[in-house]
């Protein structure tokens, strides 16, 4: 393990009853990288993220975040990471401002420090007049922004985004990715899952999961070359075809 590794896993495995959701995952994500995790539905992306964030105990294998072992010191890891769950996980019956304030406080910010951070987030993410709107009444794009704000209230070193742009319109998606790049520019490592191929192309490196197995890692060009396909989307479809081939 070197100092530039933000996320590192060895033989990470998760079994649900008969089903191996993630199988022997060896993964390394470097500091400051925007790393994309791709794969068909049910290929184990969410399970992988949950293990990396300490939300699920791996059946076997280990993972470190920023050099800290997730199973050994989960609380230390929690201080260093931000996480946006696949399903909107904020409080519908709290306002935008209350949600942000709550998360900032849970992450230990108090008084002036908290006020300053909230102000920053509000300007960075452009909440303005929506500040006192109930989170439950926000549109999809704004909900995702709010979730991003809450996940980054404590300036995490590593950010996990599980399908952050699912169901969001193209303009809002682009804005969201601009934010991702801004965070990356601040030195934050980002692991993001997506089903949008244009977003996959925007990642510095990609990993493909298929039935819990890691089958390809590299830049978009490397992955395309490895599978002999013209685009990432073709790679994806080729993978799914193979998947189905296996299952028959």
């Amino acid at each position: 393990m070197t100092d530039t590794e933000a996320i590192h896993s060895e033989g990470l495995r998760k079994v649900f009853g008969e089903l191996a959701a993630v199988e022997g995952l060896d993964l390394t994500v470097h500091r400051g990288e925007v790393f994309g995790l791709l794969g068909p539905n049910g290929s184990g992306k969410t399970t992988t993220i949950r293990m990396l964030t300490g939300l699920m105990a791996p059946t076997s294998g280990r993972a470190t975040i920023d050099g800290v072992d997730v199973t050994v010191a989960p609380e230390q890891v929690r201080r260093r990471i931000g996480y946006m769950s696949q399903r909107f996980g904020l409080y519908d019956d709290l306002t935008v401002e209350e949600n942000m304030r709550f998360y900032a406080s849970v992450y230990g910010l108090r008084g002036d420090a908290r006020a300053r951070r909230l102000e920053e987030l509000v300007t960075e993410l452009g909440f303005g007049q929506r500040l006192h709107q109930m989170a439950g009444t926000l549109s999809g794009g704004w909900k995702q922004r709010l979730a991003l704000a809450c996940a980054t209230a404590h300036r995490p070193r590593v950010l996990f985004l599980d399908e952050p742009t699912a169901g969001v319109d193209p303009a809002a998606r682009r804005q969201f990715w601009d934010l991702i790049y801004e965070f990356a520019a601040q030195g934050i490592t980002i692991l993001v899952t997506t089903h949008y191929m244009d977003e996959a192309e925007r990642c510095r490196r990609l990993a493909f999961l298929s039935r819990g197995h890691l089958i390809a890692v590299g830049t978009a060009d490397e992955v395309r070359a490895q599978f002999g396909q013209p685009t990432i989307e073709d790679v994806f479809i080729e993978l799914q075809r193979r998947d189905e081939g296996v299952s028959v």
């Binding site: 300490g54 939300l55 769950s85 996980g89």
Partner: peptide, 11 residues
């Protein structure tokens, strides 16, 4: 509601 997942990932 899925809010617990987001909450317990914090310290």
């Amino acid at each position: 509601r899925g809010t617990l997942e987001q909450l317990i990932v914090t310290p």
